[in-house]
Design a protein around this nucleic acid. Structure first.
Lengths: 219, 219
DNA sequence: TCATAGATGTCGTTC
DNA sequence: GAACGACGTCTATGA
């Protein structure tokens, strides 16, 4: 990892054209060859960047970074204030908990949080337009398609609607009801779901995990 | 901007829980108070971060970053290999070219690329659920709503569908057809559009701009 | 390699 | 502050 603080101007030509006027910035060159340019604000997003794989050529105060798609980043260095390199080694990587895949596992394990007698048919039930998160039967034996999101917004309801339309064409499954399950459901999504006869369920992640933990303790 | 290279482990508790085992990384503290932690790969995305506004407390080899929503980032420093601060000043910011707004201007100027006799009614035609990119009439005088995207995906087709449903309730406009125009149209979007009787048009940005340039040269 | 869906998406604009 | 759409979205995953 090489850290350069320099007054520079930058041009990007690729999916769009962009220009950075002269100013002092951080230029980050990583071991994988990637380059990013940061201003002194915004944690997440660099002003400009080039993702690997790409190649960096230094020549005469001008750095040129090119990738395979022909996108180009040209950095004109006017004054270098700091330049240091550091050996970091391979990162062991991030361990995450609480993402959609995990919610799906937890819910599939405890269908009864949706109602008494609910039973899993299968997770990732395949359809022509993609897999349904959970297909199950409710207490009455009616087929139910469950769409799970971390944050329930309108496009999630649209997605579930498409699945339902398709599943209801299958005489072996029809009628199929829909349930939209998320840790948080936005008002508009709730309204749209209600309008389409789709049920809404707010999932409590800690509770789901707690239930699951209790279950594990039994063994 | 403060640059710290350190062996550290990190925990994030907020929208999800995440843990970074001990390793050497770059910790970036920006003037706006934001903090990000970078491994030696990936130009764009930090391993962990906290966006401003947030507050950083340093105490005894442990940094705690908290934001208003109660999200928390805890950095345990085990060995500091580099620590430097730099004054960068305010960045003048990025100048961009080639985005959707420009596509819309170009297409509105040359409706005939959609077909002979097509005529603009207006850009950003207002509806209750937001403006339609372009409303026009085709060669037969039928009203057409055009949705423009740089990359045409399924969401864009859904958006256009909602507009069409609304516009077709207006007896002065109905029947209204739909055209989905983008620089690139994904297969799924094309299928969904076809299923709903929506036409698809792939736009060539350079060609549109070229035509427009030629036009400018006439004056 | 390509297509698809998720993301601690982030970021801007508008209401 | 919430909602909505764009983004050089990026990134992981499965075909």
């Amino acid at each position: 990892m090489r850290l350069v603080i320099a007054r520079c101007s930058v041009d990007y030509a690729g999916r769009l054209s962009a220009h950075l006027p002269s100013a002092t910035r951080l230029i980050l060159v990583k071991a994988d060859g990637s380059v990013s340019i940061h201003a002194d604000d915004r944690a997440y997003k660099p002003l400009n960047w080039m993702s690997p794989p790409c190649s960096l050529k230094e020549a005469d105060g001008t750095w040129t970074v090119i990738n395979k798609a022909g996108e180009k980043l040209i950095i004109s260095l006017e004054e270098v204030l700091h330049d240091s390199s550091h050996e970091l080694g391979v990162d062991p990587g991030l361990v995450k908990d609480g993402v959609e895949a995990h919610l799906q596992e937890l819910l599939a394990d405890r269908m009864e949080v949706l109602g008494a007698g609910w039973q899993l048919i299968r997770r990732e039930y395949p359809t022509a337009i993609g897999p349904v998160d959970i297909l199950c039967r409710d207490g009455d034996g009616t087929t139910v398609a469950v769409e799970i999101k971390r944050r329930g917004e309108i496009d999630g309801v649209e997605q579930l609607t498409r699945y339902l339309e398709l599943l209801n064409r299958d005489p072996l499954l029809a009628p199929v009801k829909g349930v939209f399950a998320a840790q948080e459901i936005k008002p508009q999504a709730r309204v749209l779901a209600g309008d389409r006869g789709i049920g809404c369920v707010v999932l409590d992640y800690d509770e789901l995990r707690g239930i699951d933990d209790d279950k594990l303790k039994l063994f």
